[in-house]
C-alpha cells in the first residue's frame, strides 16, 4: 500500500469510526462523570484511586471537588493511554479533514502546499501540546 491517497482515505475512515467510540466515552466521562455522575468506570477500579477516597476528598474541600474528579481520571494510567489515543485520533482526523478541504478549495499548487504545511505544523504542535498535558499530569493528590 502506497501513501498516495488510498491509505490516507482509509485511515480517515478508520479514525472516524474509532472516534465514534472514543468520543462517546470521552463525552460520558467528562460531562456525565465530571458532572453529577459518580458511578461507572471508576467503580471497577479504572481511576487513580478508589471511589470512597475520592468522595471523602471532595466532601472535605468542595471548592476543589471538580479538580479532584479530574485528577482521579487524568492521573490514572489507563485513562492516560485512552487520552493519548483519543487526542491522536482527534488531531489526525480533524487536521486531515482540514487538509481535504484545502485540497478542494485551494487550486494553486504553491498555495495549496503552503496551506497544507501550515495545517500539518499546527496539527503536530497541538498534538504535542495535548500529549504533554496528559503525560505530565501527576499531582499525587491521593
Amino acid at each position: 500500500m502506497s501513501s498516495r491517497g488510498s491509505s490516507a482515505w482509509l485511515l480517515q475512515r478508520v479514525t472516524g469510526a474509532l472516534l465514534f467510540i472514543t468520543l462517546g466515552t470521552h463525552f460520558y466521562l467528562y460531562h456525565y462523570f465530571m458532572g453529577p455522575g459518580m458511578w461507572g468506570f471508576d467503580s471497577i477500579g479504572f481511576g487513580a484511586t478508589d471511589l470512597a477516597t475520592l468522595k471523602a476528598m471532595m466532601e472535605s474541600n468542595p471548592e476543589m471537588a471538580k479538580y479532584y474528579k479530574l485528577a482521579h481520571l487524568f492521573a490514572a494510567p489507563l485513562w492516560k493511554v485512552f487520552d493519548v489515543t483519543f487526542i491522536s485520533l482527534g488531531t489526525y482526523h480533524g487536521f486531515y479533514g482540514i487538509k481535504a478541504i484545502i485540497d478542494d478549495w485551494v487550486t494553486h499548487d504553491g498555495w495549496r502546499s503552503v496551506a497544507n504545511w501550515v495545517v500539518y505544523i499546527c496539527g503536530v504542535v497541538l498534538w504535542v501540546m495535548g500529549i504533554v498535558a496528559v503525560i505530565s499530569f501527576n499531582p499525587e493528590l491521593f
Binding site: S2, G5, S6, A100, D103
Partner: peptide, 9 residues
C-alpha cells in the same frame, strides 16, 4: 485514481 486529484476528492 490514487493521485491527489483522483478518487479521494
Amino acid at each position: 485514481l490514487d493521485d491527489k486529484d483522483g478518487l479521494w476528492r
